[in-house]
């Protein structure tokens, strides 16, 4: 399809959006990510029945925490799309990047946030 999405988006693969824990989203922001986009399957189409609903609950919880911290609830968002919706993914990545640019950089951002986030999160999401 040769679709493009912003190069600053770091992708961390997980087996199901239900694997997401609140701490994963918090750690991403703590280590300097400007925002986090959770892409789960479409509602009603979760292979594990409720994984994407659970992910949405976690995202809502993190939004509350970010609001309390004054970092802005809009830095995290949940989107529902299927694995075959490549064009929609590119559109969402652009939409989220535009939103984050408007919010400005994460005030907790240090040097090399991408590397820090990847180093912190990849082992966490593969832990049992």
């Amino acid at each position: 399809m040769r679709l493009s999405y912003p190069a600053n988006v770091l992708i961390i693969q997980i087996p199901c959006s239900g694997r997401i824990k609140t701490i994963h989203l918090l750690r991403a922001l703590q280590y300097g990510a400007d925002g986090v986009l959770v892409a789960g399957c479409r509602e009603g189409e979760c292979h594990f029945r409720t994984g994407n609903f659970r992910a949405r609950c976690k995202v809502e919880r993190v939004k509350e925490i970010l609001d309390d911290l004054g970092l802005g609830a809009d830095r995290v968002e949940m989107y529902n799309l299927s694995a075959s919706m490549g064009p929609r993914f590119a559109e969402i990545a652009q939409e989220m990047t535009a939103r984050i640019k408007e919010l400005g950089p994460n005030p907790l951002r240090g040097p090399r946030p991408g590397e820090n986030v990847a180093a912190a999160l990849r082992p966490m999401v593969t832990q049992t």
Binding site: I23, L26, L29, Q30, I65, D68, L69
Partner: peptide, 8 residues
């Protein structure tokens, strides 16, 4: 989670 939030 609380530790992460307080650290932030």
């Amino acid at each position: 989670q609380l530790a992460a939030a307080l650290a932030m």
